[in-house]
Design a protein around this nucleic acid. Structure first.
Lengths: 231, 231
DNA sequence: CCCACCCTGACAAATTCCTGACAGATCCTC
DNA sequence: GAGGATCTGTCAGGAATTTGTCAGGGTGGG
């Protein structure tokens, strides 16, 4: 869900807006000062910043300027009482995406927020040329992006749990991973199950991936300790 | 340079705006009627549409509605005398990107135009589907521009949602896309639906596109993960 | 009013998961 | 090194979850 950073020193207004934005389904954080706004913008990496121009410390324009200068291209909606055209033009020139003057209609503001977010995150999140995350060992090749596993070039179908388990092991290649850890990583933070669940899946993995399932070369058992993946 | 389509029946205003936009370096065309506006939007494929609501034939809202419904996602800036909040909210709801009420400051308008284009021009240029406006797989051929889909040379009619869904999958070909992501990309970022909506549309797509809908070769299910498009 | 489209809920089908049993391995103690 | 205790491998069946498909109703445009 989209994240909205609200930089506004008027606590009442901020609170009301936060509520309404949250009702719309956004995740909202409030910064009451320019400095904290800048920090949050950089660290939290919101999808939209609603920026009041009148702030106790830094001027809103300054905040915007700093952001853009430091390469933060998050959309910014300016919210202020200053309605002079020259103010607006300056705001846009500094890289704002919209400019709303107080007093404003709540519905309109929400609609504008939605319009900006629709435009920004509409096409696609942030993919296209993502880092190739592929793994390879023996005759096996794993493409995480497509959740595909090839062996000798032919695709074999791992179930979701199997793939997750395999990836959990690969992620910690060379190290022993206990059943409990695997349970937590793959199955979610749950109490220790006392059954053959993990082993069963390991067995299945070996059957599918290993040349000789009974003498595994990649998915090894460490007696009394757990399993270890060997590339 | 960016192309701006101005849909405005007031000739004086249109002329003045056209001049100013051209001075700013935009390529501008003017449509004085809603119908011609729609045509130009589809054929000329502008980067931005400035749309007056009061038009001799079609209502501006209708124009916008038609555009979005037929999948034209060009940014739209609404320009009108109607300043009621409900009008604005309606405009945004129909997919507008900005809403400026007359009388407006020229500088502000230009700044808003620039802001929208700045935001839009960035990522979408290198977009996988946008870059190429034809897709082909199996016996199927898609012309993105005209939103036409042929199979074995004969046209088959996909509904807007179906086509959007298909394009969302194609845009990330080879990668698993979860139902939630599809909901966000195709249905808007507000979705948290828990029903068979996505699946139903997928099913319909397969029925129309796949040779053997029950053994799809292009639109694949990744159990517990989502769907994946395979060219 | 009719039609296209979309969504929903219900059910069937498919897939995956878990469990318990048992056999085989391994370890440990004496 | 024998024997018992524990740990691991494997299997099959049913349980649980996830997906496919369909029909019906709502909606809005023409």
């Amino acid at each position: 869900m989209a994240r909205v950073l609200l930089v506004e020193d008027n606590v009442d207004l901020a609170y009301g807006l936060q509520n309404n934005l949250e009702i719309e389904g956004y995740e909202v954080r409030v910064a009451e000062r320019g400095e904290t706004g800048l920090e949050q913008a950089r660290e939290w990496d919101p999808d939209l910043i609603i920026l009041d121009l009148m702030l106790p410390d830094l001027d809103g324009y300054r905040v915007l300027q700093h952001l853009r200068k430091s390469g933060v291209m998050t959309p910014v909606l300016i919210l202020t009482a200053r309605g002079e055209e020259s103010d607006k033009v300056l705001g846009f020139r500094l890289g704002a995406d919209d400019y709303v003057t107080k007093p404003f209609g709540l519905m309109e503001l929400l609609a504008r927020v939605e319009a900006i977010l629709r435009r920004v995150q509409g096409p696609s999140v942030s993919d296209a040329v993502e880092g190739q995350d592929a793994e390879e060992f023996g005759a096996v090749r794993i493409d995480v992006r497509s959740r595909t596993v090839l062996r000798d070039g032919i695709e074999l179908s791992l179930t979701p749990k199997e793939l997750d388990l395999l990836l959990a092991l690969i992620r910690r290649r060379g190290a022993v991973v206990s059943r409990l850890e695997l349970l937590q990583e793959v199955w979610g933070h749950r109490a220790a199950v006392v059954s053959r669940t993990v082993d069963t899946h390991i067995s299945e993995l070996r059957r599918k991936l290993e040349e000789e399932p009974s003498h595994p070369r990649h998915i090894l058992t460490l007696h009394k300790a757990g399993y270890r993946f060997q590339p």
